[in-house]
């Protein structure tokens, strides 16, 4: 077990995947000589050479589409899009091409590509460098979406994404890049679609992913001081999400809060709430509540951004309301 930062875990996963499979290659803006804007690809150009690590021009649509074409031609490309906000430029290639190729070609082939991109605020990066857009991708049949909340998951989910035969969007969190955590020695992939109980509890369940997991854990500690035991689930994977795990937890706790950093309205939480209101209706002792960002662009200034981002206190407030 080695302690490692989230960003280094990403780097290690890329290096191990490239070592294991010569068809894996990287493409992105400033990922080579510069080692990436957040240094996720540091030293990989030196290690694997310019024929495996492509420093691309600022052409998000083209490099994403190139990944589709390369994947259809026997390779396993990993694209880096520097900020999740910039995936707007890649949308046709992800939504109309990557996601649909397998189905619309009748299962003739698949598109084993990965797109890594960081979402999230906390860096005062402003409205075009902070967005959490994962719900858009989760809405598109044919794409998978994962969102690691810690270094070990950043490693394991990325390895699984690269191994996966279908297109996977790996949503990293730039506020977590410096986070330290243990990386297991076996360095195994983590199965896509499986969540994890981070903290067991009997009174209420908080479902979260990404940066909201740590907020939920803090909220659970606060509640524990009052004798209320909150179970915290890290979804890890958003598309598909672990419906069985959430339902099973709900059948024990009978109260549910879903927390994420993304805008609350029409988000991932809305889907989870809707499903649980359907298949878990008989288990509910209180309203299912969501915690997310307000319906506004992510603001730049510190006071504004701090007020905008969900935090543990808002999860606590939601828990009190559902338990009331």
């Amino acid at each position: 077990m080695a302690e490692i930062r989230y960003i280094k875990a990403v780097n290690q996963a890329l290096a191990d995947a490239m070592e294991a499979d010569p068809t894996v290659f990287l493409i992105g803006e400033d990922i080579g000589a510069a080692g990436g804007s957040f240094k996720a690809t540091r030293d990989l150009l030196e290690k694997f050479g310019p024929e495996r690590v492509y420093d691309s021009p600022i052409s998000e649509a083209a490099i994403t589409g190139m990944a589709v074409g390369a994947a259809l031609t026997g390779m396993r490309p990993v694209v880096e899009i520097m900020f999740m906000d910039f995936t707007t430029l890649s949308m046709d290639m992800l939504v109309n091409q990557a996601a649909k190729a397998r189905s619309m070609f009748g299962g003739q082939g698949s598109v084993p590509m990965v797109l890594r991109t960081p979402h999230g605020g906390g860096l005062n990066a402003g409205p075009q460098h902070s967005q959490c857009l994962e719900a858009w991708f989760a809405h598109v049949p044919g794409l998978r979406v994962v969102c690691p909340s810690n270094p070990a998951d950043a490693y394991g989910l990325l390895r699984a994404a690269i191994d996966d035969p279908d297109p996977v969007i790996v949503v990293e969190n730039k506020a977590l890049y410096a986070m330290k955590g243990d990386l297991p020695d076996d360095r195994e992939p983590i199965e896509i679609g499986k969540g994890r109980i981070v903290r067991p509890g009997r009174d209420a369940t908080v479902v979260s992913y990404g940066a909201a997991v740590a907020m939920a854990e803090t909220a659970a500690e606060t509640m524990a001081e009052e004798g209320i035991e909150v179970e915290v689930i890290d979804l890890r994977s958003i598309q598909p999400w672990d419906e069985d795990l959430v339902l099973e937890s709900l059948t024990r706790t009978h109260n549910l809060v879903v927390a994420h950093e993304a805008v609350e309205a029409f988000g991932v939480g809305a889907e989870i709430v809707a499903r649980m209101a359907d298949i878990g209706f008989d288990q509910l002792d209180g309203p299912i509540l969501r915690v997310g960002a307000p319906f506004a662009p992510s603001p730049f200034g510190k006071t504004l951004e701090d007020a905008y981002r969900p935090d543990a206190s808002r999860i606590v407030a939601a828990l009190r309301r559902t338990l009331a």
């Binding site: 492509y54 490099i63 589409g65 074409g69 390369a70 259809l72 490309p77 046709d92 091409q97």
Partner: peptide, 22 residues
């Protein structure tokens, strides 16, 4: 044959990527 396409110009990046792979 990597596919006809319903989006004008979409074959361009796909084929460019195929050329990179080749």
């Amino acid at each position: 044959m990597l596919g006809a396409n319903g989006i004008v110009g979409a074959g361009l990046p796909i084929t460019t990527g195929s050329a990179l792979a080749l």
